[in-house]
């Protein structure tokens, strides 16, 4: 392709490229520069070198606490969400009556899940006189202080994330449906029961999709903001037990107007996500099986 046609092609991709540059690439680069500055937003940034990073890594107790909470949150949420999504997808893969309706119904939480309205609703459901405590006390147990007790507070926002299992479920469902029927028939002829079929046929065959969902959900979980922000008024209460790193970035950037420091936190978070993703890719060689793979 050359001459005029080449320009037409470029014109077609231009909106995307411009959008990528203006809204992603330039801010990405700018935030890296700003992470080495003291930038109070309303005055010019001043170069401070590695000071923000040194403060963050060696002295900032709030950051250490936020990182610890975020790690706990991610390591609980991601496996729980993937397990739940896979279990529901497995059930929805059966040829049941009204299966189309059920598939839609189970996907709905994903559409509503991250919204402000649902986070507000969550606050009422888990309040001392909310639905969950009504059920707990109705069963004869003592009410749980979900928002005031640091042992339980993280549980509420974890559950809010797990509840949004729909998108992972749809991807699992597509993977389950792509497994050829003859594989199951062969297993049945060999006398495999349902558990053996699931663990030795189904699971290995969908490992590429599990891996894809794992990376996707992990990256999303590290960036979680809406739920804890709304449920705790942005404070990460009680005792910062729900104070995820993105809340700290927001606090520093938009409440304390310390954009340079906030950028440094964002880059450390980026580095952590990058390292964990690379570890996941490295480990995938041992547990993910692709079609045509020599090990298959």
């Amino acid at each position: 392709m050359g001459g005029e046609k080449q320009w037409v092609g470029l014109a077609y991709v231009a909106p995307y490229v411009i959008g990528l540059l203006v809204f992603t690439a330039i801010p990405f680069g700018a935030s890296f520069y700003l992470s080495f500055t003291d930038y109070p937003l309303l005055s010019a940034p001043i170069w401070v070198g590695l000071q923000n990073y040194i403060e963050l890594i060696f002295h900032d107790r709030t950051f250490h606490r936020a990182l610890q909470v975020t790690m706990t949150y991610v390591f609980i949420t991601v496996p729980l969400k993937l397990t739940f999504a896979l279990a529901i997808a497995y059930v929805l893969n059966y040829k049941l009556k009204f299966i189309g309706f059920f598939r839609t119904a189970y996907y709905v939480p994903s559409i509503l899940g991250g919204s402000v309205a649902i986070a507000v609703l969550w606050r009422y459901i888990f309040a001392d006189i909310g639905l969950v405590n009504m059920i707990i006390t109705g069963l004869g147990f003592e009410a749980i202080n979900f928002f005031g007790d640091p042992r339980y507070a993280l549980f509420t926002i974890t559950l809010l994330r797990v509840w949004q299992f729909g998108s992972a479920m749809v991807i699992f469902l597509a993977a389950l449906q792509s497994i050829p029927a003859h594989v199951y028939e062969a297993a049945a002829i060999d006398g495999a029961n349902k558990a053996q079929t699931f663990f030795f046929i189904t699971l290995p065959l969908i490992t590429p999709v599990i891996f894809f969902n794992l990376i996707l959900q992990m990256v999303e979980a590290f960036q979680e903001f809406n739920g804890p922000f709304i449920i705790t008024d942005g404070t990460g209460a009680p005792l910062r037990s729900t104070y995820l790193v993105p809340l700290y970035i927001y606090d520093k950037a938009f409440r304390q107007f310390d954009m340079g420091y906030a950028s440094a936190i964002a880059w450390i978070l980026f580095a952590i996500i990058m390292v964990l993703t690379l570890i996941a890719f490295w480990s995938s060689r041992h547990w993910v099986y692709y079609a045509g793979d020599k090990r298959s």
Binding site: R123, Y124, F126, A127, D128, I129, G130, A143, N145, F146, F147, G148, D149, I231, T232, D233, A237, P238
Partner: peptide, 17 residues
């Protein structure tokens, strides 16, 4: 106490039961 008060989910005063 702070902890008991937080059990309500930190609504505004006028929204508290």
């Amino acid at each position: 106490s702070w902890e008991t008060d937080a059990a309500m989910g930190n609504p505004g005063l006028h929204e508290r039961g």
